[in-house]
Amino acid sequence: MDLTVILGILGAITTISIGDLMEGGNPVHVVHITSLIIIMPTTLLASMVSTDGEHIKGAFKSLGIIFKKSTVNLEERIHQIIELSTMARRDGLLSLEAKVAQLDNEFLKQGLSMAVDGNEIETIEETLELVIEETEHYYHGCAHYWILAGETSPVLGLVGAVLGLILALQKLDNPKEMAEGIAGAFTATVTGIFSAYVLIGPMGNKLKAKSHHIVKEQKLMLAGIIGIVHGDNPRTLEAKLLNYLSPAEEKHSQFN
């Protein structure tokens, strides 16, 4: 699990609850079933109107990416590419044929298969750049669905509050019921804002951030494949690929 997501959501709920309790409130009272029904499904359905069907389906399939720890490990990928580069430089590209069949990454497998099959570098580069472009577009569309839902949620919270107030004002002859109705109406506003800035909206931004790592790994692999086909020195190729690591990551050469 991605602790930044889990701890972020649970931490936000905890701090809001503590603040409410300190003021004499009860966080449980904010959980209003009617408000949840009005806001959550409506938000997701309304966001479908302006989102491509492929990206709607992908948005829900990508929930695993959001809540699970990223599987992208650039250091391990560089190590793998340099091993393949060393083998190809020593024994020729055809020696990679058996290794390619065992690769766990479809992008890397596709690129190296094209190389082993004797395709020109330009053809390999054009093909894989198209894959990268489509991957980026796909995840951007999926993330946009959640971000759009986050932007829609507060407005629907306002709609829920207005509907609650309309019903509450019909009970002017019973001040107690009217007060309870008004209190219930404002739970819709809280639900909408909370969903937008703690749940749905951040989920979209998290997916966008993680998709950046997926795309960066593909760009790294493309550079590695081109280097292998060129017959670059493995040490030189590794130095180039290490530049794909962020400043927060330490760069360790396997040749040291």
Rank of each mutant, 00 (worst) to 15 (best):
I9P: 00
V5D: 01
D2R: 10
S70Y: 00
L84C: 04
D104A: 15
L112W: 04
S195D: 09
I82N: 01
G25M: 14
I225V: 06
I13C: 13
E249S: 06
D173E: 15
N105R: 00
M87L: 10
S113N: 15
R77Y: 00
T127W: 07
N119A: 15
K61P: 08
H213L: 15
L93H: 08
P27W: 11
L7P: 03
A183H: 04
P27A: 14
G11Q: 14
N233Y: 05
D117E: 15
A179C: 07
F67W: 03
M1G: 04
T236D: 09
L45C: 12
V159E: 04
I38Y: 01
V100I: 15
D104K: 15
L222Q: 03
T34M: 14
L108A: 07
Y138A: 08
G164P: 00
V116S: 08
E23S: 14
G24F: 08
V5Y: 01
T123I: 13
N119H: 15
I200Q: 00
S95M: 10
G64R: 08
T127E: 11
E125I: 04
K240F: 06
I18E: 00
F67K: 01
A196P: 06
H144E: 12
A209T: 11
A188E: 03
A188F: 01
T15A: 15
T51N: 06
R77P: 01
L112G: 07
L45W: 06
K240L: 10
M178C: 04
F60P: 06
V100S: 04
E120S: 14
L21Y: 09
I18T: 03
G141P: 03
S70M: 05
K99E: 15
L237N: 00
V49D: 03
A12F: 12
H55M: 09
A98D: 15
Q170Y: 00
K216P: 01
Q170W: 03
N233T: 09
L169Q: 08
Y197H: 14
Y145M: 07
K99L: 11
G19K: 10
N256P: 01
E238T: 01
N119Y: 09
N233F: 01
I81N: 01
S195M: 14
K109S: 14
K57G: 07
L241T: 00
E97W: 11
T135M: 12
V162N: 04
D20Q: 15
L222D: 00
N73R: 07
G24R: 12
T123S: 05
E249K: 13
L220E: 02
V28M: 15
S253L: 08
L148C: 09
I121S: 13
L165Y: 02
I6Y: 13
K210R: 09
T86A: 11
